[in-house]
Design a protein around this nucleic acid. Structure first.
Length: 850
RNA sequence: GGGUUGUUAGCUCAGCUGGCUAGAGCGCCUGAUUUACACUCAGGAGGUCGGGGGUUCGAGUCCCUCACAACCCACCA
């Protein structure tokens, strides 16, 4: 047998994981209520970070816990191609070789990235295993797998047929560096200092000037109107007239529109429908021309006067301001702070540009989701996120699903060569040109937004609509993911799930917060402060890292990374290991059916086990992982090890000891799978692995009176230790009068304290043990009690104050009338006890001050 | 501009539907080499639960308000 002196995870983990796989322990049991989780797929292009460790830990804890209830558990792993994310990583990689994506065709680029990602995929499957994830590897899904792509196409087709898909030339959020559009939710807004320029626009009829204010003077090259508020008396006379645009000399109308804020700037605003979302709407309302003067490369287009063509936006702005100044059109410049949208990846300023894109009408999808959420048909942890999501859904705009990148799922739509307005749905995306009914069609070069396909994740991975998994495991029991992708992912899974399958895709959503770096800053690759769990697993073991990240983590609350938690958990693993070592030296029977309670301490520990188990069930049911961990931790360490095992050294009950070890291992397994299984295997507790089919152990009810009796001994021992320490003495005798229990436990008391002996006396002397009800004294002479008397004084004050409080409470008629009866009863009892103790303390003081 | 969440011991954080003298881990102080474990054991110090007000028999917990912090949303040119 011979377990090593301390637990060394590195020696066991790989082997244990292999064992689980061999025993097919991760495949759902045939029997039992279905429980399912599909893991959020991490980016296939990067290593797993500590945030994913949190996700995976929580999900695996749930999965293993559910198995311990006897349920049939499906946990599906996966990986995300993460379209834009991955392509931009690859582009950086290309750039480091002095290349760019423009050197390659779309197909070639796709292939290159595919190979690039393939290298990483096996890499992180290894990481999953090292984290100990009990997932069904046969169900592994990649977001570019055939079935996922087919699912995306089927959804697109259904939407197309239902009239939810439309193509439109709209303003999109365009990153001119990456050359792709983004959804609104992907744009990062940031407050920045900018300039507000006041520019004079002369009226064509020479009747004066109109002064406008703008932060983007270069867009005046694309102005097609000037707008004022209809109620603005200052400008009423100008409405309907025309002004001459400086520098371009185009003539544009002055219009009235109530979107204008009379109090901002001059109350007159230039309208550039092709480059500003507000102006776009105004342009539509007033039927204005749309002039695109900025290209997708972020340069001034050929629609602008020759002098500016080809300049970058910032250069054009400088030149334009200089020119305006020179010609006397510039009135003044103010410094203002305003919000500017940036690319979340490269920080380039997002340009609103006109572009033909596919959009999904969100209103009908959102409405059904709102209904489900309002009816609480999906339970959220925490519930505040449900409210937040409702607010978001109620203001939802249409979703631009086109992306101008190669690394993604091609959009299965083709445009007629003859009629540019005519589009057809077709899945032959491997061809650029197809023929249908003798007509030629060209493929849309764009790909889907990653979130469009990943929104089908809950049912696509289960082989909707005919797969066995789908029939058995849909809707998912739990969707566990980061609260940061509530809008991007959770909301869309709900909407698409309802739309496609007719049911919400999951019953429960558990959202965790993110882990910040140790100093409280946000972890990001660019800051280089991302924590890699793998070296931590090397150092502390997989279980320690798993428990370390969930300790003290409330749902959706962000927390700083703290190695101390991992150390705590590592120590806990070692504690478990040593408990097992101790027990293995005393028994080789681990059958809970043979457990028989003999001593008071047996009843006491079983009583505590049963309470711990009940709390465990309740806490896990409520998704209170951190508290569940805490519950088990303190039972194992403080009750089982510190008291029961210490007592066992004196009086051992091997059968119960073995049974308790088994029970404890099953309980702790979800939190510490490797060490618990390693112990299980090393001691040969059962032939089966701990993971496969071990349900939580029930121990028979204990005798409460006997358990209580042991509690008294614990109280006595604790008080003796405390008093001896306080007076800095040892080797004193414990005196007692007429206390059978002290007699019974004399040896144990001696063993667990430093007293020299126990002696029965008729009358006490020395220091009384006042915190228990037992008549006991420590045989100490008067010179040694100075510290003790100080403490007695403190205790007297404390008791007096407690008695005052209790008396006041009980004197309060409302309290006695309104508070629950058992609470009032409890207060009465407390008062009685406190009074007795005060009496004891006073007597002690009197005795020594004689 | 709107919204959400925080503010509890030196540090990092728990504390569910209001109810015993508010908890954990680490750190700190004192002591212990006892045959499961120094990744250990025993004892101890340390908090007017961000400020103020309110509801209640009773508030860390509910309400209002203020301060500070973080995050999210929003088209103010």
């Amino acid at each position: 047998m011979g377990l090593a002196k301390s637990y060394q995870p590195q020696l066991h983990e790989a082997e244990i994981y292999r064992l689980w796989e061999q025993k097919a322990a991760f495949i759902p049991a045939k029997d039992g209520a279905p429980f399912s989780i599909v893991m959020p797929p991490p980016n296939a292009n990067a290593n797993l970070h500590i945030g994913y460790q949190l996700t995976a830990s929580l999900e695996d804890i749930l999965a293993r816990y559910q198995r311990s209830l006897g349920n049939s558990v499906l946990l599906i792993p996966g990986a995300d191609h993460a379209g834009f994310e991955t392509q931009s990583v690859y582009e950086k990689h290309l750039a480091s070789e002095g290349k760019s994506r423009f050197l390659y065709s779309r197909e070639r680029l796709y292939q290159l990235i595919w190979d690039f990602v393939a290298q990483n995929r096996s890499n992180f499957e290894t990481m999953f295993r090292r984290m100990g994830i009990s997932c069904d590897w046969g169900k592994f899904a990649f977001t570019l797998d055939d079935k996922i792509v087919k699912r995306a196409y089927a959804t697109f087709k259904k939407m197309w047929d239902d009239g939810l898909i439309y193509r439109g030339e709209r303003l999109v959020n365009f990153c001119t560096f990456h050359g792709t559009a983004f959804a609104d939710v992907e744009v990062v807004h940031r407050e920045e200092q900018g300039s507000l320029w006041y520019i004079r626009y002369p009226l064509v009829d020479g009747s004066g000037d109109l002064v406008i204010a703008t932060t983007r003077p270069e867009t005046m090259l694309g102005d097609t109107a000037v707008a004022v508020h209809p109620a603005d008396k200052r400008y009423a006379k100008f409405v309907g007239k025309t002004v001459k645009l400086p520098l371009t000399n185009r003539e544009v109308p002055v219009i009235a529109d109530d979107f204008v804020d009379m109090n901002f700037g001059t109350g007159a605003v230039k309208i550039t429908p092709a480059h500003d979302p507000d102006d776009f709407e105004v342009g539509k309302r007033h039927d204005l021309p749309f002039i695109s003067i900025i290209t997708h490369e972020g340069k001034i287009s050929d629609q602008a006067p020759e002098a500016y063509r080809g300049l970058k936006v910032t250069e054009a702005r400088k030149k334009l301001v200089a020119d305006l100044k020179r010609h006397g059109f510039l009135i003044k410049r103010e410094v203002i702070v305003h919000n500017v949208g940036h690319c979340y990846k490269c920080d380039t300023v997002i340009e609103p540009l006109l572009k033909d894109q596919w959009f999904v009408k969100m209103q009908p999808l959102a409405e059904r989701a709102i209904g489900i959420l309002e009816a609480k048909n999906i339970i959220f942890y925490p519930d505040s996120k449900r409210i937040e999501l409702l607010r978001y859904l109620k203001g939802l705009k249409d979703w631009n699903i086109s992306r101008q990148i190669a690394w993604g799922i091609p959009i299965p739509a083709f445009r007629s060569l003859n009629d540019p307005e005519k589009w057809i749905y077709d899945e032959r995306v491997d061809q650029e040109v197809i023929n249908v009914n003798g007509e030629e069609y060209h493929r849309d070069p764009d790909t889907f937004d990653t979130w469009f396909s990943s929104s089908s994740w809950p049912y696509a991975t289960l082989d909707y609509p005919n797969g066995e998994s789908f029939k058995r495991f849909y809707p998912l029991s739990v969707m566990e993911t980061g609260s940061d992708i509530l809008y991007q992912w959770v909301s869309r899974m709900i909407m698409l799930g309802i739309y496609v399958t007719g049911k919400p895709p999951f019953k429960t959503v558990y959202l965790h917060g993110y882990i910040r770096s140790e100093d409280g800053s946000k972890m990001s690759k660019s800051l280089g402060n991302v924590v890699d769990p793998m070296p931590l697993i090397d150092q502390y073991g997989s279980d320690a890292v798993r428990m370390g990240v969930i300790i003290g983590q409330a749902p959706a609350a962000n927390r700083n990374f703290d190695t101390r938690n991992i150390v705590e958990a590592r120590n806990f693993c070692n504690k478990l290991w040593n408990i097992a070592r101790f027990i293995a030296n005393r028994t080789d029977s681990f059958d809970d059916r043979n457990a028989v309670m003999k001593s008071d301490s047996d009843h006491w520990i079983v009583d505590h086990y049963r309470k711990t188990k009940e709390r465990h069930l309740k806490l896990m049911q409520d998704f209170r992982f951190s508290e569940a961990y805490d519950n088990i931790y303190h039972f194992i360490w403080n009750d089982f090890a510190d008291w029961y095992i210490e007592t066992s050294k004196h009086d051992v009950n091997p059968g119960l000891l073995g049974a308790l070890l088994k029970a404890v291992l099953v309980l702790v397994h979800p939190f510490a799978p490797f060490v618990s299984e390693t112990i299980w295997q090393s001691l040969g507790i059962e032939r089966n692995s701990l993971l496969s089919g071990k349900t939580i152990v029930d121990l028979p009810e204990s005798d409460k009176q006997r358990a209580k009796r042991f509690n008294e001994i614990i109280g006595l021992i604790t008080e003796i230790r405390s008093l001896l320490k306080l007076m800095a003495v040892d080797n004193v005798k414990l005196l007692y009068s007429n206390e059978r229990i002290v007699e019974d436990y004399a040896t144990l008391i001696k063993r667990l304290t430093t007293i020299s002996g126990v002696e029965k006396v008729l009358e006490g002397q020395g220091v009384a043990i006042t915190k228990t009800r037992l008549s006991c004294w420590l045989d100490i002479n008067d010179e040694q009690v100075a510290n003790y008397l100080q403490r007695i004084e403190k205790e007297i004050l404390g008791k007096q104050s407690q008695i005052r409080q209790l008396k006041a409470r009980l004197a309060n008629r409302d309290y006695v009338k309104k508070a629950p009866a058992e609470l009032v009863q409890q207060s009465r009892q407390q008062l009685t006890e406190a009074k007795q103790q005060l009496k004891d303390y006073l007597a002690e003081r009197d005795r020594f001050s004689r």
